[in-house]
Structures are given as structure tokens and as C-alpha cells.
Design a protein around this nucleic acid. Structure first.
Lengths: 344, 344
DNA sequence: GACCTCAGTTTAATCGATTAAACAGCTCCG
DNA sequence: CGGAGCTGTTTAATCGATTAAACTGAGGTC
């Protein structure tokens, strides 16, 4: 039951631990005779030797562990894919990740920072569950990487979704289908979402490039959940025929789900009478709506990978500017041409 | 920049490292004079000492880390709450969790097991993303705890949802509302889901206790996604008036979502014409349907906590029998009395 | 005064690896 | 024959803590 140590391997192979260490790590291997190498390997195999990483870490000052601090990453369905991306890179590089959830509690954050640095992690990632601008907790090492958030101070490597480009792609999708009266079902301002501002910018930009005069009545705001989407979409659909939108770009998939409900409630079909584009590509939702929702995906997995790659020094990063990760459009079946009455 | 060691504290306080260690760990503290203790504490504070857990772990043979191996826990929205539960307990106990995702790949599993045991974790949890019976990978320590899965061999502590009781609660909900023709929208057999079998048992048991003759036509099976639910529910709603169900218990919330769609498509209202109960209480879905879905919650958070508590020895567990965690019913607005034509 | 006790602190071994430096044995050469 | 140069391996220091055992004085006892 008791662990087998390197000295056990050494004893069995009739050599010193130094030799065992060198053979097993492939260091200085040209200087060790092939017979000895084989003997050591056989012995290690025979006794089932597994190196004690704690001892190794103490000596080498490298733990091959990276700390991942998040506000609530683990407890929300959103960001699991970020974790997966980060994890995959870590594993490819032979690193392990220690996950700490702080629930955005300052005390917990400090404690976590303490624990992780005490644990001598090789790198650190600070992740948020949704795109925001944060004040980094002090004690966060200068070489920590921010994931799905940008530091107020713009002094650390960070990666966030390219929301503006996502908004552009979404609205272009609708313009390309022939729509001219395109609503933006936005989140209310009080939520202070950076995503909201940026997606709105993208929306306006496409209207401009398509020569469409923005109609402020079509910029609806509500709570960014299904109920909010349903109500806001309902109000828009009550607009007189000439002003009523033929398409809606929704701040997120849940609002889009609400837009579907509002349309169905009025006997309108998607995409026959109303085209809808969402945002998030929320798992188990977007694809399951009827019809399946065309949406803009949040590149969680890719951001997770990027953050870990930077953290492990596999890729350079500019601390002055967050890296913008593209948000791909996921074409499904909720976009079609505007109804004939509105057609070109 | 260079780390401060215990010897630095010792030097500043004018004592030996042994004293520092004892003071800071509160060991033998009665034998150390209060003045010295204060001096040590001040010195530690002044130089910003943080113990090196790697060194400590090497000496004490305790890492205060627990390994959490999962098939895909991190990459699915389902099980984040399990992680959160496990994490919370770990933190309360001053432990950290190392997360490894193996994507159910045997090689990755072996590698993870190696890495974790090399890392000398104090405990280990093996988690699945959904309730299943598994063959545990060999190399998994005998005192590892299984989370959301049961070992074929029934020889390890494990926790799973009490699906049968959940099925009972769900169907009782409908019976209590006055329904007699209650369908079960089940997952197809080919998926081999233990949850499916157990929830069905619960369903039958309640019918029996209510004196309702089971009608095999009302046990519909489909792929457990929205589309499957919609089609299966559609077929049931086409049944002649006398045989048509007035309520549906759905294998999961996504199928329930499909049932809503099928009802709406036929101009039927929920719960006016059709009552629906789901399963999973899937975040960002169940509560956002219109009307909000009455469902049975999977106790992910509680199972996560339980597993960690057992892993850390805070609570006993019987290895011969998986612990059944209750699934609470979440009452929302999708259950009502049957339509008048069918009423008592 | 010799000896014991006890409080307060230090010494030194230890955990299990890594690695620079030393060493032993050989060959080779002038 | 004496040393230089190799080759293959070992010795021993080290990483930063913990902790059993030893030590040092001071006070108490007979």
C-alpha cells in the first residue's frame, strides 16, 4: 500500500537515485549506458513507480498546475465550455487546473489568491461568467490572464468576445435576406452590459452601411430573459403595418425565445412573418427552438483555449488591448425573406 | 519578487524556523511565550509571509487537494452545479479541487488518474454528467467517491438522484390536480438511460396507487430532445377524445418544451387543455417557458456536496448501496385541472 | 551543593525528488 | 610511467516546510 519511491526503483535496479532520475526524465541520457537505462526502466515498471509530483515541484519550483479563479463559472451553464477549452490546452501541455469559485466575493477572492499562490501554481487565469469590465482583485499576479473580462486598467492580457463584429454579422444576416425594418431587442440599460452597447453599435453600423435610417422605436429594451423578450417583441408587433419590424435581432437566445412566443401568440410564423436572430448559441436551447434559431455563438471554448495558451506562454499577448475573439454566426432556420407585403 | 520563506520570518523575529512554524500553526503554542508569539506574528505580517504548500505537503503527506475526474462535467451546462456543490464543501474545509475532464476516453482517464495520484491528492471524486451505471476505471482508489453514477460492482460510495421518487412526485402532482389520463413522454430505450427506467417505475406506481389502469398507448417514446417531445406529444394529442391524455409527464424539460410546441400548434393551451410536468429543472429553460414549467429538479448541487463530504470523511457512506438524493418538485404554472370535458 | 523539573527554544532529521560536482576506472599518449 | 581525457555513475546539497528530541537556564527540593 505504501507508495513506492525512487529509492525503491534504484535499489531494485542496483543504481543510485540520481541515475534513476536521469533515466526517467531523459536528462543526460547519452551519458548513461543503454543496459543501465533498460534496467532502470524495467525496475520502475516492475515496482509500479509513479513520481511524487509534490517532491518534484518543491525541487524544480514548477508545479505544472494552473489556477483558474472565476466568479461563478462552474455554477452556470454558460461558461462550462470556457473551462473545457482551458482544460484541453492544459492537458495537452501536461498541466492540471485547480478551479476556484469565488462567487464574486472579495473575501473569497483574496482567500483563493492566497491559496493558489501558496500552492505555487505556474500560471493563473481570472475568469468571468459573462463579458464585463472588472477591477482586478489586488494580489492577482501581473502575468495572470483575464478570461471573458477586461481589466479597467488595461494592463493585463485578456480575451473577450468580439461583440461588435457579432452584432454586425447578425444584422447583416437579416439585411442580406432582404429586411429593412429590423428591430434590436436589447437588454435594459440598468444591467450595464458591455455586450449590449457593443452589439448595438454593430447593429447601427450595418443599418448605416445598408442605407437604412435607424428608427428609435425599433430599439426596444427589456429584461434579457424570455419574458422580457416576449413583452418587448409583443409591443413591436403591435406597431402599425408600415412601422412594424419584419425581423428582430435579439440580445440573447432567451429573448429570442420570447420573441418566438410573441409571434406565435399573434398567429405569426417564424421565419415566414418574422425573422429572428439571437445571440449566445445557448446549449440545449437555440438548437431546440422550433424552428431552430439562427444565432451568434459566443466563442467560449476558443476563449478558454486562448487564455490558457497565453497563461502557459504558448502565445504572446498584448496587455494593453483585450484580444477580441470572433463570434461565428450559426445559421439555422429562423431567418427568411420578409413577408411579401413588405418585400422589395 | 523572490518568495519569502519561513527562514526570513525567523530571522526577522530572531527565532528559529521551528518556533515560527509552531506559532503560525498553533502547535505546542502553550510552550511558547506570548511575547515571542507576537514577535513572530508581526514579523510574518511585516514580510508578507505565505507558507509554501508544496513544501508543507511534502512533509505532512497531505496536500489538501482533491481530484475531481469527470467525463465531461465542465463542458456541459448540466453539471456545473455539481461542481459548485463539491467546490463549496472543499473550500469550507480548506481544500482545493483539481478538475480533470476525460471526455470518457480511457487513455485520458488513465493519464488523469496517474497525474492526480502523483499529485498526492487527499481524496478523489469520479463524476458523470448524467446518471449512469459505470465500470470504474482501474487505478481508481478504493476510497474514491462516485458522483451521479453508480459502480457496476457496488463497492464504492456513490450518490445518484432518486429518480424513482422523482417520478412518483411528478405523477402525484398530476393526479392531485385531478388527471386520470396521464402520458409518460419517455426517452427511447436505445439510449439505455437508467433514469428512464426508474422514472417509469415511479409513474406506474402512482397510477397503481390511484387506481388508474395503465394504458400502454400513453407511454410514448422518442429522442429526449425538444423535437422528439414535440412529435411524440403531437401523436398523443391526435388520439381520439376518450383516449387522449390530459396531462404529460416528460422525461426531461426539453421534451416538455416540445410538448408545449405540439399543444400550441394545435391551439391547445398549457395548462388549460394540457398539463405538463418536466424533469431536470434545467437552468435558463424551465423557468423561461411560457407558462413556466412545473418540473422535478435534479439535485446536482446537493449531490456535489454529498460526494465531497464523503470524500473528505465528513460523513459516512455505505459502499454497498448508492445514496439516493431526493429530487424536489418545483411547482410553477404548467399544471392545472383537466379541461372540463374530462373533469370528474 | 547536587539533583530534578520545567518552561522556552533550538537542533537536526525528514519528506522525495533534481542536479551540480565529484569520482572511479579506462584508454591513450608523449 | 604519469597524467590527460573519457565514460558511466555516485555523492551530497537543495527545495521549504514540520516535528521529535535535545538543549539551556532558572527555580525548587532535600
Amino acid at each position: 500500500m505504501t507508495r513506492v519511491r525512487m529509492s525503491d526503483v534504484a535499489a531494485r535496479a542496483g543504481v543510485s537515485t540520481a541515475t534513476v532520475s536521469m533515466v526517467l526524465n531523459g536528462v543526460n541520457s547519452t551519458r548513461i549506458s543503454p543496459q543501465t537505462q533498460q534496467r532502470v526502466r524495467d525496475a520502475a515498471e516492475a515496482v509500479g513507480y509513479k513520481p511524487n509530483s509534490v517532491a518534484r515541484s518543491l525541487r524544480t519550483q514548477q508545479t505544472r498546475m494552473v489556477g483558474l479563479i472565476s466568479d461563478t463559472i462552474a455554477s452556470t451553464p454558460f461558461a462550462g465550455r470556457m473551462l473545457a477549452g482551458a482544460n484541453d490546452v492544459a492537458r495537452e501541455q501536461g498541466h492540471l487546473v485547480i478551479l476556484v469559485d469565488t462567487e464574486h466575493d472579495a473575501a473569497a477572492e483574496r482567500q483563493a489568491l492566497h491559496a493558489l499562490s501558496g500552492q505555487q501554481v505556474d500560471a493563473m487565469i481570472y475568469a468571468c461568467m459573462w463579458h464585463q469590465v472588472v477591477e482586478v482583485p489586488d494580489g492577482l499576479p501581473a502575468d495572470a490572464v483575464l478570461l471573458d473580462c477586461a481589466p479597467i486598467t488595461a494592463d493585463r492580457a485578456a480575451v473577450v468576445p468580439d461583440e461588435r463584429a457579432g452584432g454586425i454579422a447578425a444584422v447583416r444576416e437579416l439585411v442580406a435576406a432582404g429586411h429593412r425594418r429590423i428591430a434590436f431587442l436589447d437588454a435594459e440599460e440598468r444591467f450595464g452590459l458591455v455586450a449590449s452597447r457593443l452589439r448595438h453599435e454593430g447593429y447601427l453600423e450595418v443599418l448605416a452601411e445598408a442605407g437604412i435610417e435607424p428608427d428609435s422605436a425599433l430599439h426596444a429594451r427589456a429584461e434579457p430573459v424570455a419574458g422580457g423578450g416576449r413583452d418587448a417583441a409583443g409591443r413591436l408587433l403591435e406597431l402599425p403595418a408600415g412601422r412594424r419590424p419584419t425581423a428582430m435581432f435579439c440580445f440573447n437566445d432567451r429573448m429570442a425565445m420570447g420573441a418566438y412566443a410573441a409571434a406565435h401568440h399573434r398567429g405569426l410564423s417564424v421565419p415566414g412573418d418574422l425573422s429572428v436572430v439571437g445571440y449566445d448559441d445557448q446549449q440545449l436551447v437555440a438548437a431546440e427552438l422550433d424552428p431552430p434559431l439562427t444565432t451568434i455563438a459566443l466563442p467560449h471554448y476558443e476563449m478558454g483555449r486562448w487564455a490558457m495558451e497565453v497563461a502557459l506562454g504558448l502565445r504572446p499577448a498584448d496587455p494593453a488591448e483585450p484580444h477580441l475573439m470572433p463570434c461565428p454566426v450559426i445559421r439555422r432556420a429562423s431567418v427568411g425573406p420578409p413577408p411579401a407585403a413588405f418585400g422589395g
